[in-house]
């Protein structure tokens, strides 16, 4: 279609100069750039608010949240090199972070960590609630996933599977500052240890991804959090 003009039975109009073509493209590109910047400026605030609200709902929500007892959250940034934690200022961001939840009296209720892993269909992102006093995970919620509808996405809804995360043991040894028995997913019906996750039958790959996600986050974050647990308790 585009080459029709070349075999000119009729005299073809002279091709416009390169300068003109470049000028047109520059102009259109500038216009498009302005439109995008304007759209970004307008939507940025609502987008941030939405994301914050979803996270708050997933943690503090009275029915669906993983830490309904908490009244307020404090975000802590983690420095993996120095193994230190520091309160994160409002609006600031950090790559490694966790959320400490406190009840109305100001006592520490639990610590929410994030984790990522590669599932069956793509990256999976989840948060879980770690209760440092009991040393167990007491809540788990998938924020984002690409698992197969009807099979892998049961990790969000399957009641028996979610039962795993009501009392999942984190075997932290303070003497060595390590996890003695990492969280692991076992085949459906084979769970016999408190640190094991009973997989969903028919969605083993997705269940295993959840196990890896938890094991990785717990292994990296728990020693640092537990080393500073008094600081976190004081809310500093």
């Amino acid at each position: 279609m585009t080459t029709v003009a070349k075999q000119g039975a009729t005299p073809t109009p002279a091709a416009p100069s390169s300068a003109y073509m470049i000028a047109v493209m520059t102009l259109v590109a500038t216009l498009c750039g302005l439109l995008i910047v304007a759209a970004y400026q307008i939507t940025q605030k609502p987008i941030e608010r939405n994301e914050k609200q979803i996270l708050q709902e997933a943690i503090l929500g009275k029915e669906t949240g993983i830490m309904p007892r908490a009244e307020r959250l404090t975000t802590y940034a983690v420095n993996l090199q120095d193994k230190t934690v520091a309160k994160l200022a409002e609006g600031a961001t950090a790559k490694e972070k966790f959320y400490a939840g406190y009840d109305a009296s100001g006592a520490l209720v639990g610590i929410v960590m994030e984790g990522v892993a590669s599932g069956y269909g793509g990256p999976m992102k989840a948060i879980f609630n770690y209760a440092p006093d009991q040393g167990i995970i007491v809540g788990f919620s998938v924020l984002d996933h690409r698992e197969t509808p009807g099979l892998g996405d049961k990790i969000k809804t399957d009641a028996a599977f979610l039962e795993n995360f009501k009392e999942l043991a984190v075997t932290y040894a303070p003497e060595t500052q390590t996890i003695t028995n990492p969280i692991a997913t076992v085949r459906h019906g084979r769970k016999n240890q408190p640190y094991q996750i009973d997989a969903i039958s028919g969605a083993t790959i997705s269940s295993k991804a959840v196990g890896r996600l938890l094991a990785k986050s717990v292994e990296v974050m728990t020693p640092i959090i537990m080393a500073h647990i008094d600081q976190i308790r004081r809310g500093e």
């Binding site: 498009c32 759209a39 970004y40 307008i42 609502p46 987008i47 939405n50």
Partner: peptide
């Protein structure tokens, strides 16, 4: 270029809504 611009705008808009 024009189409990609409006797709980006729609992308932001849906995220905000």
């Amino acid at each position: 270029l024009v189409i990609a611009t409006f797709v980006t705008i729609v992308d932001y808009a849906i995220k905000a809504i």
